[in-house]
């Protein structure tokens, strides 16, 4: 992995982590490990049909048509951003309990399938 890209990638994790109220030291320590997982998931060719089924659970709270109060829109989301967020929830770095519990049962393949589904589709 090119050095420059790696540093940028770490910043991409640390900055949202700071915004989400995560202690910087913890975020920096975990950043390398998280980045390795994120890269390996992004390398998976996710199945959008499986992602569509799994994404039914997300649609209970995340509106397809527009962002809602307190809950972001994920239709059309950038895959890098989506996978980062899901891995941080799964590894217990992000704190929202609904998302932690949801992400905890997702395999790498399932996160890749969800990313393929959501990034694939415009809001409708």
């Amino acid at each position: 992995m090119p050095r420059l890209r790696f540093n940028v990638a770490i910043m991409a994790i640390v900055l949202p982590a700071l915004a989400a109220g995560i202690p910087a030291a913890v975020a920096a320590e975990d950043a390398t490990e998280i980045e390795v997982i994120v890269e390996s998931i992004l390398a998976i060719d996710g199945d959008p049909a499986f992602g569509e089924y799994l994404g039914g659970e997300c649609a209970t709270c995340h509106r397809r048509s527009a962002p809602a109060e307190g809950i972001p829109q994920i239709s059309g989301i950038d895959p890098q951003h989506f996978v980062h967020a899901m891995v941080e929830y799964r590894e217990g770095i992000r704190t929202n309990e609904v998302m932690r519990t949801t992400a905890a049962r997702l395999s790498d393949e399932e996160i890749a399938a969800l990313a393929a589904h959501f990034t694939d589709r415009a809001a409708r």
Partner: peptide, 29 residues
């Protein structure tokens, strides 16, 4: 999971706002 006693006002407000978002989400769903 379950919310804990003694949580901060900020977290409780976030949880309420999340419920508003969920309502809009499930109605659309």
């Amino acid at each position: 999971f379950i919310s804990q006693t003694g949580e901060s006002d900020e977290l409780r407000k976030e949880t309420y706002e999340e419920s508003l978002g969920w309502y809009d989400g499930i109605i659309e769903d």
